[in-house]
Design a protein around this nucleic acid. Structure first.
Lengths: 368, 368
DNA sequence: CGACCAATTGACAACGTTGTCAATTGCGTG
DNA sequence: CACGCAATTGACAACGTTGTCAATTGGTCG
């Protein structure tokens, strides 16, 4: 237990040898106990565990990954700038890892294409992670998938664009969810429904637009391209698109944004223009992140189970690592969350403010 | 380069031996080049680097930390539930790590007291991190600081409560910032200023309250405890405190919340009560997180440089690791950010709404 | 021209664990 | 009571790197 180096800040580190000595067994036996291997007498196992406990011993991940075929490390790679989504995903994955005594290595990727691949491969090679959780939109990169396959590294993708591909993945039904939301608006009587698309490179963007279109079609409403604006999943893009829609000659009575950030942007635009929500305009979001509950009025949105998606992805990965079994694709349920930002269609279309906003003229606790 | 194990999913991994062979040198020389050690002829160095490049070789962190006294890993421990803060801090630390070819191991702590210490020590022992970045409120735990000192592990604390303590830390002037904000409100003519405290166990909470009090005193305004409410840094607590303040007999004309989440809660309360912001009520936040820019009206707040704090903390740690020098405490500047949620004091105090709001008619499916 | 010293390079052990395989123990059976 | 086989345990190499220290190279000076 004495360190071989006499260095200032060096402190003795407990090793498997210390445990073996205290328990009066060989290090290999300690290793067996710690790895739940069979063929250890119950009494021996107890002695070893007692020694581990009394020494507060924690096996070195470095040594383990160097000697064994396991690093007990899972990598989580993302690129997404949305703080709330990222944290949800991180915590979902961490929670599952903790249950299996794995640790999560979080990595924000940098670069694009070629460089991205190098970045991820560098992570894999350096840290020896046993597997990877890949967040969107990285999960939609065929090049990355190919590279990981070549590398023979187990990985699970969150919300990829091709569930049928042989690799494992978890996702939700973006198209169906968007259809439900659109139907909700239609049922409220809206016929002029604006839609703000997400970032063009995100697969989910296309799916959500498709759901919107399909709901319109089912209800025999005509699709008008003028009601569809391009956004980029960020607040400002939603605000700009909202302004455009609301100041057009025949403005929509409802706007469905592809995520909550952009919906918040639409709310901002409406407030600026003095358009009351939901009386004169209904606004709907997507994702049900934290901001959906703090903006005013609170957003009707689709609950995307980010935490659960990450939890399930990690579960899939860990189980396949443990059993060597193949992984399957999993689809998680979403939920339409009704709050105060949507309401019945106004009788006469949106009411332009009679002047600079009456600031919040209004709204004694709509609901609650 | 051939793996010793013939295992299904095993793939040959490039090692230092491969690089040495390609470059025609001993592995130790490769090691020297990769660690920027002196005494390598320029021509040799170039040959080695070329080999590294051509093989896409990445040294194994496991082997490095096992053999050397460096793991090239920095741990980041937090407990904070605020997504925006956490992500800012993570990215600030990651950015600095990347520059030095270090990696960041993010860890959300679990447990309290005894259990917390075990959790952190487990991380340290297992991962061999070279140092730790400790976020508030963990940075204020004397037990944790003591344990890390005993373990002789270099660490930097973000926003601790005792800058003079010998360990390194970075922080901002919470008291001064709160004083500035309060003065801003006073200059706008407000004399009845509500204050919502942060979580009682966070040191910053006390500092911000102190700044508020000191500004009142400097301007000869009387401090009235009825205008101070306890919050917990979360949205709901701000909303509740806001309701209490605004429905009191003599409501304040301005409310200063100790963070943006709670300020957003106050806005929600004001909207519900039909109180116009900033015409009838000014609202100020603290932190300048993402939400300060997306609520309506956008929040006047104090910019807390979370990203920079983490960047600097990491910088301090890495530099001390590299040079073996002692670390100093660093204080980063904050900034008063003026937006639309604060304005001149109304002539006749807050204007209660004249009745059920014209706009937010009750929403469908009230709260969820 | 030879010796000496600094610069450069390499051989090999060590880090703390797991994989392999051999040795030992324990128990049921003939 | 000895034998055989399975269960249990241990000895030792290997993982991929860095630390230590010795060997080699190259240049300078007397």
């Amino acid at each position: 237990m004495l360190s071989r180096r006499a260095w200032g800040r060096e402190v003795t580190r407990k090793t498997i040898h210390d445990v073996a000595r205290v328990a009066g067994v060989a290090i290999k036996t300690v290793s067996r106990v710690l790895n739940d291997e069979p063929n250890v007498r119950e009494e021996t196992r107890a002695r070893v565990l007692a020694a581990v406990e009394s020494l507060s011993y924690y096996p070195s991940l470095s040594a383990r990954s160097l000697a064994g075929r396991r690093s007990y490390l899972i990598g989580l790679v993302y690129e997404n700038p949305s703080a709330n989504y990222v944290v949800d995903v991180q915590h979902g994955a961490m929670a599952r890892c903790r249950q299996e005594k794995f640790r999560l290595f979080v990595h924000q990727c940098s670069g694009r294409d070629e460089e991205l691949i190098r970045d991820v491969m560098g992570l894999v090679d350096q840290t020896h992670v046993d597997g990877l959780i890949v967040c969107p939109p990285l999960s939609q990169s065929p090049e990355l998938v190919k590279a990981l396959d070549r590398r023979k590294l187990p990985f699970v993708r969150i919300s990829p664009n091709d569930l049928e591909y042989k690799s494992a993945a978890v996702d939700m039904d973006d198209e169906g969810a968007a259809r439900e939301m659109t139907e909700h608006l239609i049922e409220l009587g809206h016929t002029r429904i604006g839609f703000i698309c997400g970032h063009p490179t995100h697969y989910a963007s296309g799916q959500r637009l498709r759901g919107y279109k399909s709901a319109l079609k089912d209800h025999r409403l005509i699709f008008d391209a003028a009601y569809v604006k391009q956004g980029h999943f960020v607040f400002e893009s939603g605000m700009n698109a909202g302004r455009e829609l609301l100041t057009s000659p025949k403005p929509p009575t409802a706007i469905f944004a592809s995520n909550d950030d952009m919906a918040a942007g639409v709310l901002m635009a409406a407030h600026e223009l003095g358009i009351a929500v939901p009386t004169a305009l209904s606004v709907a979001g997507f994702d049900d992140t934290y901001i959906a509950r703090i903006v005013w009025p609170r957003l009707t949105t689709i609950h995307q189970p980010s935490y659960d998606l990450a939890w399930s992805a990690t579960d899939l990965l860990l189980m396949s690592l443990k059993n060597g079994t193949a992984m399957k694709a999993t689809r998680l349920p979403h939920k339409l969350v009704l709050r105060e930002s949507t309401g019945p269609v106004p009788s006469a279309g949106p009411v332009p403010s009679a002047g600079p906003v009456p600031s919040a003229g209004p709204a004694p606790s709509a609901s609650l």
